[in-house]
Design a protein around this nucleic acid. Structure first.
Lengths: 237, 237, 237, 237
DNA sequence: CATGAATGAGGGTTCATTCAT
DNA sequence: CATGAATGAACCCTCATTCAT
């Protein structure tokens, strides 16, 4: 029988914290394994090994592979959105907001190949309907259309074009090398597809991007740390 | 030692034909199953069931899942390319050629949801480097750039933008409904991303598309026939 | 993180014991099946059936057929060696030690035809380099040579001769009937090959052999019990 | 319907010859594959590939793996026996005959590692009852015993000792290196096990062995030629 | 007889999931 | 809640054998 909730008893709280930490650890390991093996692969054995948890414990946190993938996607999306929002929050101009946000998104993936790999592999499977691109972009796009920055007729397919172009960019960054200004070129192409002139598109992508920072205990930060640690370990051998 | 080749002996020929038919049958079944389960799934058991052959026979034709996927992709690419080429062969204007070719591609997928599903699922995994978009488009794009139709600076990322945009279109056509002029809108967006004006883009996508025909014994035709047959069968139950 | 190790918690211990029992059960079944089908045969399905476990469980203990064979061989070797050592431990004379040890070895196989079958089938494949004959005999042989019991020149091939002769003896005991004093005759031949006179050889093999006992829960004992049980069962039908 | 046998018609004869050649070719390939993969392995696919025959044709010559193994063993035994007989035919002394025959046997295996491998792998499985050692040795051994060369009491197990010792020698020659006089040492040990003195044993193994020749179209010769050809081919790469 | 595609049985292996401890 | 052994379904693949041509 569960103990009666006692407000002075700190056990429930620490238990909940432990649980949350474990969950984070599993998600972190899963991101790495999904990135390496593809989001369609069977990852549970590798994830539990990487997270150093027992098989049985895994099922106290996630019920299926799919569940895990969803959790990873949401966690990653939220963190990326937050990072981007930190940068674009003060930008008033809708065109510049859109351009900068996408550049940030590409930059985050470029900073961590594992993330690029994960997102490239995930493709349309995550964020199909409710995601960054489909939720946060439309308002800015409409505002930009009102200001004459974007062609109103372009908006009906705008998010699809952006989604697809970003996805290919993920793939390029995940495998093989890209030119230094590849992200800007891609963003300019997206802006042109929205009806913007090349000159304007170049202008909106000209400013240097601020450094994107993730909180120390964030998924992004931890994954990057682990991939660095792993590379160092591989060098030892 | 083998018997001397006898030109009157038709056995080798009929054997080769039989072999080719079996191969076609497996590829056809595989396209359907890949479309249903995704190109990353294990399809061999379902494919052999769909093709009504034994497991053992399968391995006389393909060694792995991957092998099979490659074969399906190539066969499908070739047929689609051929269909498109039949239409655009007589178009001299590079811009119109590009626009029409992409419209045809989208149309072929629209005509057969299984094809759309397969291509959406395949994503970047097939034809990553050597495919329609990376092989046949560049010459036309460059020619168009010389004529001033496209912005030369856009070409470096043009194929990526097209690839991604087409891929999202596949996804849309595979799942859910699309507007009647969705393909044209998408092509217009691609053309704009290449530096073309909205007005020109609309003009290049205005002509009605000729009916795309596939030979009766082609993969496209057979798959469509089978999916119709299957739907009818499902209606019976 | 795992719970702090609690010395009062007996769960780890019982778990380890259960695991060990399962392992023993599989090895025991494997010995029987290897003896019946030969050490080169595919035994996993039959072993899991004989041990009444699932296929999946098997792979929690052994990864391959070869793995299993190695485990069986080691277990059997260790037990036989232990049984023999119990008998010869107090024998000071090297010639008598060697003669008695080999007689014991042959006797153990004679006591259990399954063991003879297994060892005959295993032939050179197990213990090729590191086995009873190559590890424990040489010291005694050298000591015997120093005492003039064996011809020093014979030692270079002595272990090979013994290995081969014992192997054929295994085969004879595994299939068909042998004379009552066959083991002694074979040991005498081995001793002669080492340079000993027939009279001395007869003397060293004259003493009656003590009863060889194996612990109740040993592989040898259990296999014998099971083969008896199986024979009884077969008689019922 | 078969044509009536016409004594002037040479077709039956050439057909039989072709058949015999094909059979020889399969046996030759089988010897090689058995030597490489072990006599317990499934060899038919590799054998038909090596012999460049169709799968179906194989079954016109042999019905099972076991069949093939038996055929190879017999063919090889016959040829080896013939080679040895050519050498020992003129030796009157039974002890020298035995010693020389065994030395020849070992020498044949030493000349061709494939043969050693095959015989080592075959172990007791071929020639278990009716083979060289069990058929041709006993008369000589008994004659030697009558002349006082061998100890009559040793004869009951003599063939077993020889069989086993020769088998281990096969194994040693098949894998790893052996001393130059290893065969002679082994034969001396066998002779001692038969009751002969070391000095006599040395004398009987002292004479140089004549060159053992096999007819050009014999299995031994062809296998050796093929293994040389294969090594040369491997060197090319 | 030669051929080689078709077959199906059999063996090897992985993995998601459950459950007793 | 943590653990990790047990399970069985599913998949992968090879091979002996048959049979139409």
């Amino acid at each position: 029988m569960p103990a009666a909730p006692n407000p002075n008893d700190h056990r429930p709280r620490v238990a909940a914290e432990r649980r949350e930490r474990m969950r984070k650890r599993l998600i972190e390991s899963a991101l790495i394994v999904f990135a390496e093996k593809g989001v369609g692969a069977s990852v549970i054995p590798e994830v539990v090994a990487a997270a150093e948890v027992s098989q049985g414990s895994f099922y106290n946190y996630f019920r299926t592979n799919e569940d895990l993938l969803t959790a990873v996607s949401e966690e990653l999306s939220n963190e990326m959105l937050q990072s981007i929002e930190n940068v674009v929050a003060t930008i008033a101009d809708p065109g510049l907001r859109v351009a900068t946000a996408i550049r940030c998104y590409l930059q985050l993936a470029r900073n961590c190949r594992l993330v690029a790999r994960f997102l490239a592999s995930a493709g349309m499977r995550v964020g199909g309907e409710h995601s960054m691109v489909y939720d946060v972009l439309p308002p800015d796009l409409e505002e930009g259309a009102k200001l004459g920055q974007f062609d109103a007729a372009a908006l009906t397919v705008a998010v699809d074009v952006i989604k697809g172009t970003v996805l290919v960019a993920m793939y390029r960054m995940a495998h093989g090398r890209i030119a230094k200004d590849y992200p800007e070129q891609m963003v300019q192409a997206m802006l042109r597809s929205l009806g913007m002139s090349t000159a304007d598109a170049i202008e909106l992508t000209a400013a240097p991007l601020p450094r994107l920072t993730a909180p120390a205990e964030s998924l992004l930060a931890r994954v990057q740390a682990r991939s660095v640690a792993k590379a160092a370990k591989a060098d030892d051998n």
